[in-house]
Design a protein around this nucleic acid. Structure first.
Lengths: 288, 288
DNA sequence: CGGCGCATATTTGTCTGACTATATCAATCG
DNA sequence: CGATTGATATAGTCAGACAAATATGCGCCG
């Protein structure tokens, strides 16, 4: 019974395989447009250029698909409550195997964005259940210009956590952490935020600061916020050049932390973030 | 070499399949103990009893496995940098299919806890790359008594975010949100935190509050923190009964928010969290 | 003798097809 | 009219083969 079917499948495979081999390098994009484009899912692997430090599995099929679906969900192509086509249809029209498709769905599900149940299908969950603080999700968010409210919310979160973190860091930082921050600051001074290296240094600065709080939860949040900062910085750069030089603010924060002055660190950090918010708002389209 | 082993596996499978059918309902726990317990991975599906509000896919095989592996990684059974056995060995010794195992790994990977690369294997990443703010991860964390430092860190985070959130909520809450909070508070008064329903109401109260900030990022953080609160509350209950009644504090926060008094809301919330921290510390084993 | 490139082995990644479990919905029976 | 049962559709699991990637070591060349 079973064995025979497998053999028949095998024969068919050898035929299909040749086809696939031909366009394996162009990532089967062609096959998408030939005969079954009516399907709602679209799939263009390895979309993004700049990979970001921790984009994880982007080259893999399931990773790329998860990325695309994630972006589409965040972008509103699929709304909460929508049920996506069943696994077989989806994987067929995307021209990938069910396994790869399922693994992509698992990734999304683990971020709380979809929910699968037998006989029902895979449903997009309510927006407030999404894990938008997941660094990957946040990255997806910035693939399509996020709403102004969202960016404001992000800055509000920074405004709440980073000053407090700076105060804690002033009390708890180790000498090594001071050195790392000093080094990062120096790089920032040389490179400015216009270059990739400069943005990296900025990230390193903030991350070391959060890490210096010796608080795991805060450090984890830092990764997320760091990603957001990096995206908004890039965003600013894209729309207009920076109106003010943020380096002196960073230096002030650093000095306060170095001399262990918690309240000064809090205050300087607050003004730093507030200024960054202003800059970002100025460079946003005047939609409101 | 390898091929032969696979074919032998095939033959063996047709035999094994019968076995499997017999005990499919008792979730193959028996087969774990029969002949191959030497394998480092252990797997006991559907471990936890209390499922929590959003435990997602716990009944599924991949979900249960991800849960178990996650707990083991968090618990230090696998340390950062460790490489787990390859997929074939792992899935064989767990007596599950490679697909299921892979899906479990994808879940873990999407939370930043492991990293898979061909020829290398699946490696446990550095602890500071884990997404410990993911609600699921946080839940796993509390399966094995977390360290005191970790819990303190969590409260520090609450102490930073919740008062600020309360202040924002006081300014932005809608009438409906006030009603929801009032209702939750009433339930808490009746049930107290000793019952599941009371804890649920507590959760609802905090969540609605965070939601009332109209800040997506904060709301998302709330889900996480809410989970943490719920776990620590349960934790407290387990070790000793509550030393103080937290209901009046909640009521004070609520009243401040109702009348739109931001600074009062901030202050009351701060004292509420601080008190919760004290209670939790009192009920912790005096390890320091 | 050292560095560089290539072969190779190992491991994850992808594909395929079949079968199972589960949950909804409808029809049927008490 | 309600509960039970069966049909059905869908995700979940399984098994085996093959593809791609990449660290490692070997051999070759400078």
């Amino acid at each position: 019974m079973r064995r025979k079917a497998q053999i028949m499948g095998l024969i068919k495979n050898n035929f299909v395989k040749y086809q696939r081999k031909c366009h394996s390098l162009i990532m089967r994009k062609p096959t998408l447009t030939d005969n079954k484009t009516q399907h709602p899912l679209t799939f263009t692997p390895a979309t993004g250029g700049h990979d970001m430090f921790r984009a994880a599995f982007q080259g893999r099929l399931h990773g790329a698909l998860a990325h695309n679906l994630g972006v589409q969900i965040l972008g509103g192509v699929y709304k909460s409550g929508d049920i996506l086509p069943n696994e077989i249809d989806s994987s067929e029209s995307l021209d990938i195997s069910r396994s790869a498709y399922r693994e992509a769905i698992r990734i999304l599900a683990s971020k709380g964005m979809v929910e699968s149940r037998p006989k029902i299908g895979t449903r997009v969950t309510e927006r407030d259940r999404w894990n938008i603080l997941d660094p990957e999700v946040l990255g997806w968010m910035f693939e399509t210009e996020p709403s102004e409210d969202f960016i404001k919310g992000l800055f509000e979160l920074r405004l709440i956590t980073e000053p407090a973190a700076a105060a804690l860091a002033a009390e708890r930082r180790t000498p090594e952490q001071i050195e790392r921050m000093r080094k990062a600051l120096k790089v920032m001074e040389v490179e400015t935020l216009a270059s990739e290296a400069g943005r990296m240094a900025d990230l390193e600065f903030h991350h070391t600061l959060m890490f210096a709080t010796h608080n795991e939860a805060l450090a984890s949040l830092s990764t997320t916020i760091g990603a957001a900062v990096s995206w908004t910085t890039r965003y600013k750069q894209r729309h207009q050049s920076l109106s003010r030089d943020p380096i002196p603010d960073h230096a002030r924060v650093f000095e306060a932390i170095e001399r262990g002055d918690a309240s000064a660190a809090r205050w300087c950090m607050e003004s730093l973030v507030r200024m960054a918010l202003e800059d970002t708002q100025k460079s946003m389209p005047p939609q409101a």
